[in-house]
Every structure is written in structure tokens, then in C-alpha cells.
Design a protein around this nucleic acid. Sequence first.
DNA 1: GACCTTAGCGCAAGCGATTGCCCTCCTGGA
DNA 2: TCCAGGAGGGCAATCGCTTGCGCTAAGGTC
Lengths: 339, 339
Amino acid sequence: MATDRRRVPTIHDVARVAGVSRGTVSRVLQGGRNVSAGALAAVEGAIKETGYVVNRAARQMVTGRSGSVAFLLTEPQERLFHDPNFGVLLRACTAELAAHDIPLLLMIAGTEGERRRNMRYIAAGHVDGVLLISSHHGDTVTAELHAAEVPLVVCGKPADASARIAHVAADDRGGAREMVRYLYATGRRRIATVTGPLDTSGGVDRLAGYREALAECGLAADDALVAAGDYSRGSGAAAAEQLLGRARDLDAVFVASDLMAQGVLTVLERAGRRVPEDIAVGGFDDSEAALESRPALTTMRQPYDRISAEMIRLLLARIGGQDPAAVILPTELVVRDSA
Amino acid sequence: MATDRRRVPTIHDVARVAGVSRGTVSRVLQGGRNVSAGALAAVEGAIKETGYVVNRAARQMVTGRSGSVAFLLTEPQERLFHDPNFGVLLRACTAELAAHDIPLLLMIAGTEGERRRNMRYIAAGHVDGVLLISSHHGDTVTAELHAAEVPLVVCGKPADASARIAHVAADDRGGAREMVRYLYATGRRRIATVTGPLDTSGGVDRLAGYREALAECGLAADDALVAAGDYSRGSGAAAAEQLLGRARDLDAVFVASDLMAQGVLTVLERAGRRVPEDIAVGGFDDSEAALESRPALTTMRQPYDRISAEMIRLLLARIGGQDPAAVILPTELVVRDSA
DNA sequence: GACCTTAGCGCAAGCGATTGCCCTCCTGGA
DNA sequence: TCCAGGAGGGCAATCGCTTGCGCTAAGGTC
């Protein structure tokens, strides 16, 4: 505040004001072990008085910890922020980390060059850990980070389940299953699906859940009722066209993402099929898109707030030396107008 | 524990391998002034051989520069990522900074506590500069950062034009003017507007551009034709309801954001007004939303890639000690189906 | 009262980079 | 042959913090 100096106060200034040594001040900063109540109070007072804020660079030099973590996106550019889920996750992670006073570095590895630069940065120890948002089976980032022994938590199930990689995911299979059973319960018998990309766990698992539910309901699996998408709106529309062409009698479709469901809805509308009267549509995510659609989308909610909170918890545990753990969170059926 | 013994190479290792002193290695890192060609080659070889990466914390200690910048959002939580513009800007800034090898810290100051924490962090010198995304006139963040003499570039015109604050903005007034003149040129004579929040420069300037264009076209200003929104879809819908109630004869509406325009479109559809036959709708932003809408939105494109590039350029210049500058970038009319 | 613990805390050694200072050479002009 | 001038590069101080080491003094035990 009114410190005439433009200089930022250091631990030394605090020590002088408090009448103790720098070591003691540092001990207070570290939690106050082995510090008398008197010294503690003096130091805390001095910190307030001087407006001291620790110099993270200096701390990092000796501890080797940067006190920051990376939020690494390895999706292709276009999908990045078009898909509202990323934004929601990013915001939640930022807030969660802020509560721990840990800044979040946003890293986007769209191109190969960016990927390399970011890996270099991470491997150099500039961050304490990585929150990885990527799910494509082909990509090597997960393996690289794992090999580099960087504390890592992946959002979604990593492709290579054999490696013990900490991750947090929604219960894709269970969620899909519940949605399809719901469609069945409302009287639908020709239930199609638009899948997510099948080189992601989410895509695969939701399809598996769909099939499982069909079997449980005693409905025959029919490949004509399965169309692939890539989570984008456009791919949802394309898939819907296919389905309409292949199975004119379908009366419901489970779409593996809300964005794709929007595409499906527009195609159905254009084709003159009423939703939900003629065809019921169930989405997945409960993103912004679900509320925007007309009719409002019945969907499976992914608990992004809990997902991000768990990711942070797991990452901090990892950084603290604990073993990698995995968390699968339940989804929740949100019934609106489309089914 | 994963505390492996393979130590990260330091400048010392590089010096040893290259057969020079640490000082010389550092000189090479700083650009190679006063270094002979032979030493330079030796050092570069040694860097490659050892896989050396500078320790930014150590560098920061002596230079006082962190080598990172903050991307600070002070908008209320909800608007944050629902509005696709933020995402676009964030992505572009990240990419632009990455090209300079500067990591971006994402900071969200939704609540008062977050605001304080972030200000503290910034004031402590943990970042070299701030990209501020905020436009509400009431907020004090801009002033605070300016007072703290932190290199700062604001996206959008700062409320307090008197302070010399570096900023980059689209030509809101000119863009609005062009859109309204376009609507006039296509034969519209009862042109309404849905404004953005009037405590932001964008909101105010687009309204000013609207009025200016009306005057130029010889149309009378009519308060019944002006409804206020806050850039959100919902507010656009509400504004459209108002306008329909107040001026049933309107034949065009200039909406100050694409998101609001979506809201307007749904209301018009519900009211049985055809777009563009009965009523033309012009948006602003050319965001994702413009393409999603039905009919596809005619809108003014904000050049986000250029905006972000300019923001980074200005910020780096600021950090380098140059005086604050302002850049206003032209918008571009994108004609689609709604007008 | 002598002897042990042990809590509290000062001391100072680094962490890895930058940079001012100075010492060597080398070159060229007188 | 000498010397001035300048380029190249080594040396070491320095940035702010953490932490192991060891000293002091306050209790506890017998």
C-alpha cells in the first residue's frame, strides 16, 4: 500500500518488521510448525503490515515446484470452443484451482509444433502437473506425459487402460444405457443411435451402453440403426439423414452428444417428423445446447462441476506423491421435451 | 515416489559440455552478443546434446520477469463461456502467445474474492502483463491495474477514455452504422435495434452507430424502436417481445450481438413473422451462433484473429517499455439469409 | 542438582540464471 | 616496436526463498 518503495517486500522485510529471522518467517509460511505463538503472531502481523506476497520464482528455485498446473487441450482447433463442454470444464477447473491458489496455464496443442512446444515446457518442470483433455485413442500425448512421469490426470477414460493413469470420467456406458431404457419405457421400439467418434472411450462406451440396453429390453440389434458422428452438430445432421434413409420406421434416437442432437433435430424437422410425437430424441451432456434446442432436449447430464473438482483433487494427490486413481461419476437423466 | 534421479540439465552442464563458462552460455541464450562464432556453435551444440531448457524460475529471479501473461476475465460467470466470443478470443490469444513462447495464465474474476486474489497475484509481479477482457463501466479492475502500473491491454474501449490505457477494439460504431445502412439499402424503413448492455462501450457505440445511420438515411429516431439487451440469447428474446409490442410495423432489426439475434429469431418465428421476408435481422460478431441460426444470420464480423494478434503485439510493446497505444479494427459485413 | 529432551529459532548453504566488472588477446596505426 | 581500443569470455555477486544443522533455554526425571 503506502510502502513508499516501488520495491515489492521480501521475506527479509517481514523478518525485520516482525523481529525474527527469515527462517522463522518461512516456517510460518509453510504452516507454522515449530513456531511459537508469539512469533507466529508477530510474523502474521508483519506480513499484513508490509503487504508481503511470496515470490513464487524464488520458492520454485528451492522446492522445485512451480505451484501451477497446465490445462492441456489436444483436440483439433475447430472442436475446441465450439463444443460448450470444454468451456464449462475449463471454467470449473480454473475456479477449483484458484481455491487452492494455483494458477492454471492454458495450453492448446492443436498443431504438431504446438504439441512439441508444450511437451517441452511441461517436461522442463515448469508446471507441477497436467490436466489433460483429450480422448482420441491415436494420440500419443497421454503416453508421453505418462512416460515423462509428470503428474497427470486425464478427463475421460484413457485409451490404454493397461497403463495406470489417473482419470475422471462420467459413466458413459451407464448413462447411455439409462437413456435408452428410458426411451424404451416411454414406448419406443425402433431406437436408433448416433454415436460419438469411435476412437474415443466416450464414443465407444456410449455405444456399448446403447447395445446393452437394447439387449436388456429384448430389442434386436440392427446395424441400420447405428450411425457414426464426431460430436459436432454437422455430423449429427449427416447421421440423421442416414438413419432416415435406412430405417424410415424409427421412433427414437439416442444421440451421443447434445450438439449432435441439435443437428438431428434440424434434420428431423426438415423431414417433417415431429419431435417427440413421431420420433423421440435423447441427447448426452446437458450442455447449453440442450436448452437452446427446440424442443428442449431430454438428455443425460454430465456432472462437470464434480468432474473438475475430482480432477483437481486427484491431481493434487498425484503431485503429493499418491498413486494414480480413477473416478467414474454417475450421469443423471434430465427429462425435457424431446423425449 | 517418482523423484527420479535424472536431473534436468542446467546452464552449468551446457557450459561444461561446450567448454565455456556459464556466463558465455547465458550470453548465447540472450541472443549471442559478444560471443565468437566458435563459442556460439559449441554452445548451441551442447544445448542440443544435453536437451537443455532454461529454468524460468531462475531467470525470473534475476530479471524480475516471469515470461508469462494473464488473460483476465471479469465478466459474470454465466456469460463467460456461453458467449462464444470469449472462447474464440481465448484460443487466438493462446496461440499467438505460444508463438512467442509465452504461457498464458487464465484468470477468472467472477466473484469479489476471486477478483482480489487475482489482483494480488498480478500485483506481486507473477505475470509480466495482463490481457483484460472486460468492458463494464462500473468495474474497477481496469483502474486498479492501471494504477498498479502493470502492463495492460484491454479488449474493447475502456470506460475511462481519459486514462491512457492500451486497448484493441472493433469499430463498433462504424460496424453498426454499416449494418443499418445496409438494411436501409435493402428497402427497410422501420428499423429497430436491440442494444447491448449500455454500461459497456460496445453497447453504447453500436447504439450510436445505429442512430447515426438512421439520421444519415433520413429516418426519424423513435424510442419505441430501441430495446435493451445484455448480449445474452434470453435478453434478445425479451427485447424482441417488447419491440413487437411497441411497433408492430417494424420491418428490420439490428441486433447488437449474434447471440441476442438468435433470441430475436425464435421470438419472430413464434410470432409468425417471416425472416427476412417480413422482418430483416442483422446481427453483430459473426460468431458460431450466426451460422447456427435459421435463417443463417447476416452479421458484422469482428476480426477476432486480428484483435488478439494486436492485443499481444501491444502488450509485448508495453512490457518492452513502449507507450500505450490503441487500435480500432474494422468490421466486415457478412451477408447471409436473415437480411 | 545433574542430565536429557525437545521446542523454538537463527544461520547460512544452496537453487539456476543474468550481468557488471575485469582480464586477455588481437588488430592496426604511429 | 608500442600502445590504444575493442571483442571475447571468465568470475562472482545477486535475486528471494527453503531447510538442515546446531545452539539455547525451558521443562522433566531420577
